[in-house]
Amino acid sequence: MALHFRKTQSNDVSALFAVRGKTRDNPISKQQLAQMGITHAAVVEGLESGELYGWVCVNQDSVVGFCTGDMATGEVLALAVLPGFEGQGVGKRLLGNVVDQLQSNGANPVWLAADSNARVRAHGFYRRLGWLPTGDVLENGDEILALHAT
């Protein structure tokens, strides 16, 4: 299996929505994302303006994972990998690429919101990579984790 990593392009956006709807622990459909104000047009605009920055992992011309960050706030907005590509370092590499750019842009700390349920894979994943809870919790119960520049 040949995996290729590259910066997210505007023509990847439909694939990002497809991947996000097929994740194992927290799938979110295109319709649910639209209700949150996350639309195809908004993501394309964010990527083209430089407000959003992301990386994708491609296998045989199909996006199998992605990570996107907000350049203004330092927030990692999404990290999603298809179940068949979990456990291969895809998420770690995508996240690392986006974090590096956010930090290069001056974000400190870089942060994200994640499920606080220890049974969800993301809970342990982020902690193993050095992300720490800030003590803040969103209305939906997600906790805020931060990765401070070293």
Rank of each mutant, 00 (worst) to 15 (best):
S10G: 12
E139W: 10
N108H: 04
R119T: 10
N108C: 07
H123G: 10
L145H: 08
G74C: 09
V13R: 00
D12Y: 04
V13N: 00
Y126W: 12
H40T: 05
E139M: 07
N97T: 02
S116F: 11
V43I: 13
E51K: 13
A146P: 08
N117P: 03
V13I: 06
G141F: 02
A146T: 14
V13W: 03
V19D: 02
T73V: 13
L147Q: 03
G46A: 05
N11C: 04
R121P: 11
L16W: 05
G84D: 15
N108Q: 01
G96T: 00
R128V: 12
E86K: 14
M71A: 09
V76H: 08
S104K: 08
A107R: 00
V90S: 00
G141V: 03
G124W: 14
D142C: 11
E139K: 13
D100S: 10
D25F: 12
L94H: 04
T23D: 09
W111K: 10
L147M: 11
D136A: 11
A80H: 13
L82S: 05
F66K: 02
N59K: 09
R119Q: 06
K22A: 15
A146E: 14
L47C: 05
H148I: 11
V81M: 08
N97A: 01
E51W: 13
Q35I: 12
H123F: 15
I38Q: 09
L16F: 06
S49F: 08
G106S: 08
V19H: 01
L129T: 02
H4A: 15
F125H: 14
G89C: 00
V63N: 08
Y53G: 08
A78V: 10
R6T: 14
G130V: 03
D115M: 10
R93A: 03
L33Y: 07
N108Y: 02
V120P: 07
V90H: 02
S14M: 00
A113M: 13
C67N: 05
R128L: 10
Q101M: 06
D70M: 01
V81P: 06
H4C: 15
H123W: 15
L79C: 08
E75K: 06
G89N: 02
R128E: 11
F66P: 02
Q35D: 14
N108L: 04
R128S: 14
